[in-house]
Write a protein that binds this DNA or RNA. Sequence first.
DNA 1: GTGGTCTAGACCACT
DNA 2: GTGGTCTAGACCACG
Lengths: 127, 127, 127, 127
Amino acid sequence: MDFNIRDDLPIYSQVVAQIKAGIASGAISPGDRIPSAREMAADAGVNPNTIQRAMQELERDGVIYTQRTAGRFVTDDIDLIATMKHQLADDKIRQFLHTMAELGFTEEETVKMISFRIQEDKTNGST
Amino acid sequence: MDFNIRDDLPIYSQVVAQIKAGIASGAISPGDRIPSAREMAADAGVNPNTIQRAMQELERDGVIYTQRTAGRFVTDDIDLIATMKHQLADDKIRQFLHTMAELGFTEEETVKMISFRIQEDKTNGST
Amino acid sequence: MDFNIRDDLPIYSQVVAQIKAGIASGAISPGDRIPSAREMAADAGVNPNTIQRAMQELERDGVIYTQRTAGRFVTDDIDLIATMKHQLADDKIRQFLHTMAELGFTEEETVKMISFRIQEDKTNGST
Amino acid sequence: MDFNIRDDLPIYSQVVAQIKAGIASGAISPGDRIPSAREMAADAGVNPNTIQRAMQELERDGVIYTQRTAGRFVTDDIDLIATMKHQLADDKIRQFLHTMAELGFTEEETVKMISFRIQEDKTNGST
DNA sequence: GTGGTCTAGACCACT
DNA sequence: GTGGTCTAGACCACG
């Protein structure tokens, strides 16, 4: 037993993940302008270079594109967004299955427990 | 869009979670002696008081018990352990469903995707 | 007419290009360790971060890989190296054809002039 | 491996090359008046002496001539221009062959690759 | 010693 | 004002 204190992802990776999640969920729409790097950095209390790096990674993935002086924009390529969304989901699923496996549950047990959980939530009102 | 940079759980909560996960998975067996607070604190590079607080929480949940001079031990109550294990799992499941909902997937879609993921993993080797 | 004074590529791109060229030409062999970022930075009189960025780009392209504390190494994937080499060459060719087109030569003229140049070099000794 | 960071040609050489290229390509016609040194220097944000030196070199090559009070003009000698154009092209060709040789390609391979590149460009539209 | 990340602050080009 | 690049220097994890 050892403890993963400070097992943070790098900040720039967190920023990448949050932007992608925002696009996947529809909170940020295709074609939307995203705030300037300086603005985001100030909001997050983080160095602009850190945001810059996150933006570079997003652009490399084709998720955003840059217009010289106008700022950065979410891609209009909805197919790419759909692919990205399923990629994010699949990552979460794998990670979840791994966590459950560590707790000693087989995949079948896990599926049953999820179905049960959903059933329960439906019969009761909300959480 | 705002960024939850550095949103760590308190360290003592992380310790509690890891001990519970260790017991649930069988890495730590019922009746096992747990290392001293001092020892764990040194291992983790953490203040002994932090470990102390985690131990108090575990004892309050009945997961461990203290024998005056001999140290702390994992409970022998396997029903309690089973309950705890399912509680942990259910928390993970709720959290997972919430994440997937944020990505814009319904519970039905989520279940289908998990089943698909398991199927895929089975047909291929590992990875 | 305007003048492209300081039309430099970014330093990190120059570093990337030189490493790739070195690998393509065989000056750096598959599996070779490349100097540490700090060393290269000192050699080039450049900030270590600039080299770091170049290395990240090379790693992203699969041209090099990183071993935690041991340093960075050229990939052993000779197919990837071959592909990279032809990519570099094709880029040079496109750029060359573009330059010649700007001078007012058709592609056919360009090919003839190259063949003539090679013939000349062969009949005379070297340059 | 060492890095030739910032290995610019002297500015006046760049100016010479650009003027020659402009004439070769027809962007500047025989007999055309060339802007004053002062004007070009202002455009390029460069010291007038630098332009002056470039003009001297061009005049020495016979590419331009000076009329005492009227300014500088491109030569009318189309044979000289043709020669200059082929000289420029030959320089580019030599330089290109050298680059390809450094990448490890023989002259024969280079010629084949250029022919292939041209063929490809023809079959597809542009790009 | 290695690479990885981050901060603080600078200068540039573009419009 | 935007993004793009670069420097200087710091701290961390790994072994």
